[in-house]
């Protein structure tokens, strides 16, 4: 297993602590002139996003994390399993609903997304920033109301519920920001 020793420590390093992948987000070198060198590091868990502080002394090492970001295509859902394909190797990967989290709301079959592999196993994925979804059901809007500050709930083709301006109709295509879940605009076919 590859390791990094303290002389290789720096921001951006992907490392493994207790089997979990972390990103080194800060590394400060402190040393008394005639004393022990210390490396004060701040690390972020790549999945939970929790931040921890660790101090190392020169000569220490940390296991490297084999973390790779790949382009993947979403194929289909089977119960709580979501199946993706590496667009380069055609290899298939499965993620659970837990790993997917809220992103299921935006997943349409055939959609491209990015996926994170840790030691060769998929651990999370991210959909494109913007996706276009068809509105499957909503209450009809008040006639002539084009104001976007009046909103209503709609159900989109993935089964997710979103909030849209009241002028959106059933069958419309809407563009959504997947980072915030916000409606952006109506899209023409």
């Amino acid at each position: 297993m590859a390791t990094y020793n303290t002389s290789q420590f720096r921001k951006g390093l992907k490392v493994q602590l207790d089997g979990d992948p972390y990103l080194m987000i800060e590394c400060n070198f402190v040393k008394p002139g005639k004393g022990q060198a210390l490396y004060k590091c701040r690390l972020r868990h790549l999945l939970r996003n929790t931040v921890i502080d660790r101090t190392y002394k020169s000569g220490d090492s940390i296991e490297a994390a084999d973390v790779e970001e790949i382009d993947a295509q979403y194929l289909y859902r089977q119960g709580d399993q979501f199946v993706f394909m590496n667009v380069q190797t055609y290899e298939q990967y499965e993620l659970t609903l837990d790993q997917i989290d809220d992103a299921w709301k935006y997943l349409k079959e055939g959609m491209n997304c990015s996926m994170l592999l840790f030691n060769g196993n998929p651990i999370t994925m991210t959909p494109p920033n913007h996706v276009v979804l068809r509105v499957e059901y909503c209450e009809p809007g008040a006639k002539g109301n084009t104001a976007s500050n009046v909103t209503k709930p709609v159900k989109v083709e993935t089964g997710a519920e979103m909030t849209c301006p009241s002028f959106v109709e059933m069958g419309d295509l809407i563009k959504v920001d997947t980072r915030t879940g916000d409606y952006i605009e109506r899209v023409k076919e």
Partner: peptide
Amino acid sequence: RRRSRLVLGELATGVASY
């Protein structure tokens, strides 16, 4: 969801394979 995307972004601008 939002936070984990930030992490991916950071990796993308990060360095080559370990």
